[in-house]
């Protein structure tokens, strides 16, 4: 981990400094526990998942650090360790644990991590694609027709076996597209991380940032669309 984590760390310090212990009302300096009365504190809704795990907001993360921190925080928050505590503490423990589990699940998976980062950076509502991506438009319309024909055909007929062969070819083709998308996506991830590491505040950097985010969003939604098509295809010809 490089020294570029200062931004997020500072922000967290600020948030924590502003908050107050729900129990003893003292100003909170501790991270998740009040320094004075040692009571567990609800994790603020404003703390993003990266900050929660003490990770920089990057798309390549050290999953071993993530896991170690997840286990450490699980030990801090899990309801098993709050059985003898007050109702308020039990309820905080439950809420924090549920949040922690969601955060871990989100950051562990590279795609969910990217989608989450997009949400944070560009404030997106999930963009669900309902029509084929432009560069695949013709191809997918044709595939849909072949799929329909195949579904209606007599599976033992010669027509069916011709269609099946065509669908197999389409599948190979689409899977190739999927691999291309994965590669481009990971290139974008690296570009994003490099840009963040440089931490420049220039106009160029800002333009590049928004262009990377836009491209990522595009690929992510195309990716989901193509994935669903492939699943449908595999199911039909199985």
């Amino acid at each position: 981990m490089s020294g570029h984590t200062h931004n997020t760390d500072d922000r967290r310090q600020l948030q924590m400094a502003r908050s107050m212990c729900w129990h003893c009302q003292s100003e909170m300096a501790g991270e998740y526990f009040c320094d004075r009365c040692v009571k567990v504190q609800p994790v603020s809704k404003d703390v993003d998942y990266f900050t929660c795990f003490g990770l920089p907001r990057r798309l390549a993360i050290d999953t071993r650090v993530l896991e170690a921190k997840f286990y450490e925080l699980s030990r801090a928050f899990h309801p098993d360790f709050y059985q003898n505590k007050s109702d308020a503490e039990q309820s905080i423990s439950l809420g924090n644990s549920a949040m922690l589990n969601t955060a871990y699940r989100t950051l562990r998976d590279p795609i969910q991590r990217a989608e989450y980062l997009l949400d944070l950076e560009a404030g997106s509502v999930k963009d669900i694609r309902t029509s084929p991506p432009a560069d695949l438009f013709e191809e997918i319309l044709e595939l849909q027709e072949t799929l329909d024909e195949f579904r209606e055909s007599d599976r033992a007929s010669e027509q069916a076996s011709t269609l099946r062969a065509k669908l197999h070819a389409d599948r190979t083709n689409l899977e190739e597209r999927q691999r291309e998308m994965e590669t481009r996506l990971h290139q974008l991830f690296s570009r994003w991380d490099a840009l963040q590491d440089r931490g420049e505040a220039t106009e160029e950097a800002r333009t590049e940032r928004s262009s990377i985010l836009k491209d990522m969003r595009n690929i992510l939604s195309n990716r989901t669309y193509v994935k669903n098509i492939v699943n449908d295809l595999v199911e039909t010809i199985a």
Partner: peptide
């Protein structure tokens, strides 16, 4: 064993 964890008897183990 889980009962022991809940009663605070041990903090070594945690089941997720």
């Amino acid at each position: 064993v889980q009962a022991d964890i809940l009663s605070g008897g041990t903090t070594d183990m945690l089941l997720l």
